[in-house]
Amino acid sequence: MSMLSLKYEVPGDDFTRAGEASSDVKHKLKQLGYDPGAVRRVAIAMYEGEINMVIHAGGGEAYVEISPEEVEIHLVDHGPGIPDVEKAMQAGYSTAPDNVRSLGFGAGMGLPNIKKYTDDLQIETEVGKGTTLIMKVRPGA
């Protein structure tokens, strides 16, 4: 049973606002007394996802369902899609532009970090249509 349903707009091309959704989710999970390890994993995975949406996809939407058993996050964008998911999942592989690298991103760690910190990750992507990440984090897992 869901305790809380949240929806956020992730702004495109605005690094100053990227992270607002994940910060808010982190705050709410803390208030709910959620397992601290799970809170950290949710926050990191979701922030990486938000940054990816800003860098590559012109923003999108984040949907978060919180239940005692798990946190399920859907990150939905209408960007260019990922042509080669396997490659994108390799640590160190990046297509981020130089201006993004100068901000400290673009190290090819985004998707690998998301994979590392979630208990379940599904990537639905279509070139030219967009990408949806579905990630699940379970407390204590």
Binding site: A18, Y47, E48, I51, L103, G104, A107, M109, G110, N113
Partner: peptide
Amino acid sequence: DLLSWVMSRAQAGNVWLTVMGNINA
């Protein structure tokens, strides 16, 4: 200084030394 790297490795309570003074840091 690489934010994704730091994010996955820095621990709660750490003093974080970096040259990245932007909002993402």
